[in-house]
Amino acid sequence: MVKIIIACCMLSLFAAAPTFAAAKPLSGIAAIVNDEVITSTDLDKEYSQMQKEAEKLPAAERNVQRSAALNRLVDRKLVEQKIRELDIKVTDEDVRLAIEDVKKQNNLSQEALEKALASQGLTFPQYKVQLKEQLERMRLMSQEVRSKIQVGEREMREYYEAHRADYGGGSETFHARHIFFKLDSKASAEEAAKTTKLAEEVLAKARGGEDFVELAKKYSQDPAAAKDGGDLGTFKRSDMLAEIGNSVAAMKPGEVSSLVASPAGLHIIKLEQKSQEKGRPFEEVKDSIEEQLYKKKSDDRFNQWVKDLRSAASIDIKQP
């Protein structure tokens, strides 16, 4: 019975319209891929779906071309044909187990799953069909693409070193002290000159080898300096005022800066220590790096594989 229904549907694509008043208009042909038809109705649905997906993207990326929808359908058709050619099978039990896994990972009951699907405009039977197709494509990728991919230890280490910041490493940290001289933007020229002269005198003492901690306790107008000797603690460049952060980043440990002007006043900075955060060790993130590189290689190889399928296929585009 199913075969009869399918045959009738295929016939309706090509047969002349019968002379019944209630006859529905035939769907046009958008493309023919290895003798299999993609209809205009298929294209309309895919184009509509891509527009919905584009709504989640930034405004600059929402321009969806109808040709892109047709290309996606052609690629999908080629993949479907290859699945049949290689006799890749996904059973109802495979689908059931996959659904149970989805429910378990997301802590969903059957009712909650169906409700979530409904919010996305999907019925449970439609979801099962989509999931089966997805499993078929995954098995195809495993057989035709992923089995031919390797990720080596050296490649993973090179990626790790190039992306240390992603794993909490590579960022510079600084330990510094400062002597602060308050200089209000509304101060008179005479007051500004007086403060600047004092700061220059203290700078000369600091560069002359006098104890920076004692100088901070004696001259700094930072209220905490009397106790901590101007200690700024350990910080990253971005944690501080840009003027201070940029200054310490260019300094060497033990060095005393020139006068540094900030919106609050003048600073004399001494860099005590500079270090780099080690971050998470390679062995701890090795598996995630391998998975990331493997996925990228798989995607790249799969895209090339589909291009090869297209070049070897008979594709007749009927609609632009």
Score class of each variant (00 low, 15 high):
8 C>S: 14
9 C>D: 14
10 M>Y: 08
10 M>I: 05
13 L>T: 06
13 L>E: 04
21 A>H: 15
21 A>Q: 15
26 L>M: 14
30 A>M: 05
31 A>L: 05
32 I>C: 03
33 V>P: 05
35 D>E: 14
36 E>R: 12
38 I>F: 00
47 Y>I: 10
49 Q>C: 08
51 Q>M: 12
51 Q>T: 10
54 A>I: 07
55 E>C: 11
56 K>C: 08
57 L>A: 15
58 P>L: 06
61 E>I: 05
63 N>K: 13
63 N>C: 07
63 N>F: 12
67 S>R: 10
69 A>K: 07
71 N>T: 14
72 R>A: 11
75 D>Q: 11
76 R>E: 15
78 L>G: 07
81 Q>A: 07
84 R>M: 09
85 E>I: 01
88 I>K: 01
88 I>F: 00
90 V>Y: 01
91 T>G: 01
94 D>I: 00
95 V>N: 01
98 A>Y: 04
99 I>M: 08
100 E>I: 06
101 D>G: 13
103 K>D: 05
109 S>D: 10
110 Q>S: 11
110 Q>I: 10
111 E>P: 10
117 L>Y: 03
121 G>I: 09
121 G>R: 03
122 L>N: 09
122 L>F: 13
124 F>N: 07
125 P>N: 04
126 Q>N: 11
130 Q>T: 04
132 K>L: 04
137 R>K: 14
138 M>V: 12
140 L>F: 02
145 V>P: 09
147 S>R: 14
148 K>S: 07
154 R>F: 03
154 R>E: 12
158 E>Q: 02
161 E>Y: 03
161 E>D: 06
166 D>Y: 09
167 Y>L: 08
174 F>K: 05
175 H>F: 10
175 H>L: 04
177 R>A: 06
179 I>N: 12
180 F>Q: 03
182 K>I: 02
188 S>T: 08
192 A>S: 13
197 K>V: 02
204 A>M: 00
207 R>E: 00
213 V>K: 14
215 L>Q: 09
216 A>E: 02
217 K>Y: 04
218 K>W: 03
219 Y>H: 12
226 A>H: 09
229 G>Y: 06
236 K>V: 14
237 R>E: 15
238 S>V: 14
239 D>R: 00
246 N>T: 03
250 A>R: 11
251 M>K: 05
252 K>N: 10
259 L>I: 03
260 V>I: 15
263 P>L: 02
265 G>M: 07
265 G>K: 05
266 L>S: 09
267 H>A: 09
270 K>A: 12
274 K>Y: 07
279 G>Q: 07
281 P>Y: 05
282 F>Q: 00
288 S>G: 10
297 K>L: 02
298 S>I: 00
301 R>T: 14
302 F>L: 03
306 V>Y: 11
310 R>S: 03
320 P>S: 08
